[in-house]
Simulated assay, not measured.
Amino acid sequence: MVQHLGATPVVPSAQFLAGRVPKVYLAAPFFTLAQLWLVEQTRTQLQQFGLDVFSPYHDVGVGSADEVVQADLAGLREVDFVFAVADGLDAGTLVEIGYALARGVPVVIYCENEGEEDLKMMSGSGCIICSDYVSAIYRALWTAVSL
């Protein structure tokens, strides 16, 4: 089954069609109420699409670098792709994006408020960047089914 979205077809992989559930890493800052709300909303929506979501906030929690960094990186090593919220250019989120890219893991980025210059490295390294939330969520789903 091929679904056409503009000029880009979405082709489900054989693994997905056989029932494999893709795993996504939710990279996002979670320091303000607004950021926490977005992390909760995004995690819920990705789960409602049937994806297995690793969320550092939910699955590791907050703590010192010694308490969280290795657990977050371990989570990144176990996922099929990353969904990142890049608004604010949070250092932790940028490291997670870079780590994923270095490992060849696809990255979908939601970012409304940063300029092209700030996103140059991500854009030039093949990340899918969406400036509206709904498009980003659907691009994440389309990425998941094609892996």
Rank of each mutant, 00 (worst) to 15 (best):
M1T: 13
M1C: 08
H4W: 14
L5T: 10
G6K: 05
G6A: 09
G6F: 02
G6V: 11
T8K: 03
T8D: 04
A14I: 14
A14V: 15
F16M: 04
R20D: 13
R20N: 12
V21H: 08
P22D: 06
V24M: 07
Y25L: 12
Y25H: 11
Y25G: 11
F31Y: 09
F31H: 10
L33V: 10
A34G: 11
Q35M: 05
L36E: 14
L36A: 07
W37H: 12
L38M: 07
L38Y: 01
V39C: 02
T44G: 03
T44Q: 15
Q45G: 04
Q47D: 11
Q48F: 10
Q48T: 08
Q48M: 14
F49K: 10
G50H: 10
V53R: 00
V53C: 06
F54W: 05
S55Q: 05
P56H: 00
H58M: 06
D59F: 00
G61Y: 00
V62G: 05
S64H: 01
S64Q: 08
E67A: 15
V68E: 08
V69I: 13
Q70M: 08
A71I: 03
A71S: 14
D72F: 00
D72T: 00
D72Q: 02
A74H: 10
G75D: 08
G75C: 03
E78A: 13
V79Y: 02
V82G: 04
A84P: 04
A84T: 07
A84I: 05
D87K: 01
D87I: 05
G88V: 10
G88R: 03
D90L: 00
L94S: 11
L94Q: 11
V95K: 00
E96H: 02
E96G: 00
G98P: 00
Y99H: 09
Y99E: 14
Y99Q: 12
A100M: 12
A100H: 06
A102T: 12
R103E: 15
V107N: 02
Y110K: 03
C111W: 01
C111A: 11
E112W: 01
N113R: 14
E114C: 08
G115I: 10
E116P: 05
E117P: 00
E117T: 03
L119G: 12
L119Y: 13
L119K: 11
L119D: 15
K120V: 15
S123K: 04
S125G: 06
S125M: 12
G126I: 10
G126S: 08
C127G: 01
C127F: 05
C127W: 01
C130R: 04
S131L: 02
D132E: 15
Y133L: 11
V134D: 14
A136D: 14
A136G: 08
A136C: 10
I137G: 03
I137A: 00
Y138C: 09
A140K: 02
L141R: 07
W142Y: 14
T143K: 03
A144I: 07
V145E: 10
L147N: 04
